[in-house]
């Protein structure tokens, strides 16, 4: 079943890569794409996902769509923040590494959380622990308490990511 999911996704990626529905449908590209997506899905399929039943929950896709505007909003805020700090003549930075705790357990959720933290204002994930602790490099440290830092950095994504990946 893992291989089937990967084959389906690869076939969609193949259609995106070589758009065959131009003036007339190019059947050669479609048939070749079907066979080579079966081939590469067979080779790489077993390590693709760890819990394939999560792909069939319909609510997860709705939450994933709801997650995109949140990420874009924080991304733009982060860029304006970096522009302010870089162009200011005094460089208003106060860097440090703080520790936060997360409730997420699945590996995919942790990965998406760490990458989102890297893209949002003033923070970058440096080290990850196996017990759910993340070490965050913060460009302007406001607090070094674990609970407060968790409240300020992680909570805004965790509420949605729990619904997608857990």
């Amino acid at each position: 079943m893992k291989r089937g999911i990967l084959t389906f996704l690869l076939f969609i990626a193949w259609i995106f890569l070589t758009w065959p529905f131009g003036k007339e449908i190019d059947w050669q590209v479609l048939v070749v794409g079907f066979f080579i997506s079966i081939l590469s899905g067979y080779i790489f399929g077993e390590g693709f996902t760890e819990s394939p039943h999560k792909f069939f929950g319909f609510k997860r896709y709705l939450w994933a769509i709801a997650y995109i505007p949140v990420l874009i909003y924080w991304c733009i805020i982060a860029n304006l923040d970096v522009a302010y700090r870089v162009l200011h003549p005094n460089l208003p930075i106060r860097p440090g590494i703080v520790k936060v705790k997360t409730r997420l357990r699945s590996k995919s959720g942790l990965t998406v959380l760490a990458n989102s933290i890297t893209l949002t204002p003033g923070t970058m994930s440096v080290e990850i622990d196996s017990n759910g602790y993340l070490y965050i490099h913060w460009i302007y440290v406001k607090t070094d308490d674990i609970e407060k830092a968790t409240e300020m950095i992680v909570r805004k994504f965790e509420k949605i990511l729990e619904r997608i990946f857990e």
Partner: peptide
């Protein structure tokens, strides 16, 4: 402009 590898990495990756 930033003084440290971690700050540089942060600003440049985001932007």
């Amino acid at each position: 402009r930033l003084p440290d590898i971690y700050n540089r990495l942060q600003a440049s990756t985001k932007c």
